[in-house]
Simulated scan of single mutants.
Amino acid sequence: MEETIPATEAAQIPKQRGESLLETAVRYAEERHWDVFPGTWLETVDGVPYCSCGDTGCPAPGAHPTRPDWATQATGSATVARRMWQKQPDAAVLLPTGRTFDALCVPETAGFLALARMERMQLTLGPVTLAPDRRMHFFVLPGASVKLPELVRKLGWSIGSLDLVALGEGAYVAGPPTRFGSRGAVQWACRPTLANRWLPDAEELISPLAYACGRDR
């Protein structure tokens, strides 16, 4: 079951409901062939959610790795994923980048502006997440983290002047419906479908993303 919630810009965001984190993790591995690994989870004390890591100042409560060797823990096996989440059903669903996809990360306002522009340009998008920290992640083919500085330079920008980051090998994104503390859950701005199984190259999206980030400064 899905419901749509109002978006802050020109889009509506599908929100997943009624699906457990275990079911979601298994489906990502089985249907999308994405590696997954369990992260931290939320524990409620006197009605206040805290990260299971125990840090009261945790910057991503309930949505970060539990161990430094998380990259070796990630699996593309639905069977292994099921076993992992059966041990901790509330664990965040984390997706390592630099494997089947990289992610271009931008502020929410720039992301919605870019989405509207991409629609007018009739660009083919991959999945896009919207996180409660007001960041959007555009899934693209691996290698984006290496290409990004040169792509931005060709457009007349310096990489340090834009709030545009490429997440590649050694990084990760939180997959819906992982929750971030009291701020809500990660959602799909563009959900995975059969049509966007084949991801765009970073070069195809960089112009509208850089333009939107430049406007958002």
Rank of each mutant, 00 (worst) to 15 (best):
A91W: 02
A92H: 03
F180A: 06
L167S: 06
R217M: 14
E30D: 11
L209E: 03
A110Q: 03
W70N: 02
C190H: 14
E204Y: 08
P14T: 01
Q12C: 10
T124M: 15
W188R: 10
T100H: 08
P38K: 13
G184T: 07
A78S: 11
P65T: 10
A185I: 09
L42S: 06
W188I: 06
S20N: 06
A60V: 11
T40G: 05
L125A: 12
T100A: 09
P59N: 11
Q12N: 11
P61S: 07
D46Q: 10
L130Q: 08
W70L: 04
D201N: 05
A92V: 00
R17M: 04
W41E: 02
D55L: 14
G76F: 12
D46K: 13
L141D: 05
W85P: 07
R32S: 10
M118F: 11
D201H: 06
W41F: 13
L164R: 03
K154S: 10
P132A: 01
I13W: 11
L22G: 06
G160W: 05
D55N: 14
R117M: 15
L113P: 01
V165H: 03
P142L: 02
T24W: 07
M136G: 03
M118R: 12
Q187F: 09
A114Q: 10
E19H: 09
T79E: 12
G76R: 12
Y211A: 14
R135P: 00
A116P: 13
A74N: 05
M118Q: 12
P132C: 03
P127N: 10
R215Q: 15
T129K: 07
G54V: 07
E3W: 15
L162M: 05
P176T: 08
Q187P: 06
P142M: 01
Q12S: 13
Q12K: 15
A81L: 07
L130F: 07
Q73P: 04
T66Q: 06
E203A: 06
T178E: 04
E3D: 14
A174C: 12
